[in-house]
């Protein structure tokens, strides 16, 4: 069966669709979070070298990975919006940005919590952590530029260009930071992952899935409010039940 994807790229049809999908994503995210945290913090055994401290990786690692992927997702949507002039893609890009920034922040926060018992310092200039910090800066730049342009169309297009330039730059930044780090023989966070217990693997996998589902759910919620805000003068919004009441 052929699905008409373009039908769903119009805010009018996407708005109710997203509304129907959100509970599914949100509920499954909540269930998986509970399961992942339970396995990670209760079932999984303590690590041989790092003791109980290592358990923060069940939050830290998914958050780091997702914060990086979300930047690419955001840049991808932004590029689609810039090239094909589709309104929904641009709205998706600006809906993804805060979640990406949040995950980058969580990654830094949990990294600091992990670093303190490991090295006795809240912050070490490790290549991954430094890249994550720069990634947070890139997210903040995107959000700040979008927020400071009043005309929504110019804001979408300008921020999209910035996101694309940023995503081209990310590999260069990552490479240069790594290079800088090896030259200065900085510390590197290593997982003692050679003999990862099966419960650890499960917890990590479940937490990863939970974070993804959460990111999708929250992005859809945000994009719905962006749609309402941008299309507030159109007829279909005025006829919505939640707007009428």
């Amino acid at each position: 069966m052929a699905i008409n994807w373009f039908k769903y790229s119009a805010p009018t049809t996407f708005y109710p669709l997203a509304g129907k999908l959100i509970p599914w994503f949100a509920v499954s995210a909540a269930i998986l979070f509970a399961a992942g945290l339970y396995i990670g913090f209760v079932v999984a055994p303590a690590d041989a070298t790092q003791g109980e401290f290592y358990r923060i990786i069940f939050i830290h690692v998914p958050a780091s990975i997702i914060s990086m992927f979300l930047y690419l997702v955001m840049a991808g949507y932004a590029a689609l919006g810039l090239i094909f002039n589709t309104r929904l893609s641009s709205m998706m890009a600006s809906a993804v940005a805060p979640t990406g920034a949040l995950f980058a922040f969580i990654s830094l926060w949990t990294g600091a919590l992990w670093g303190k018992p490991m090295w006795g310092a809240w912050w070490v200039w490790d290549a991954r952590m430094t890249s994550e910090l720069i990634l947070l800066f890139l997210y903040l730049g995107f959000i700040a530029l979008h927020a400071s342009i009043e005309d929504p169309r110019r804001a979408d297009r300008a921020a999209a260009l910035l996101a694309i330039v940023g995503s081209v730059n990310v590999p260069i930044i990552y490479f240069s930071v790594k290079w800088w780090n090896t030259l200065h023989q900085g510390s590197t966070i290593k997982y003692s992952g050679t003999s990862m217990h099966i419960a650890m693997q499960q917890a990590m996998f479940i937490m990863m899935a939970a974070c993804w589902l959460y990111a999708i759910a929250i992005t859809l919620m945000r994009v719905r409010s962006i749609i309402l805000e941008r299309e507030r003068n159109s007829k279909w919004v005025a006829q919505l039940i939640e707007v009428k009441s």
Partner: peptide
């Protein structure tokens, strides 16, 4: 916007 891009 520009400073993070200039890090390399």
């Amino acid at each position: 916007l520009v400073l993070p891009l200039c890090i390399p």
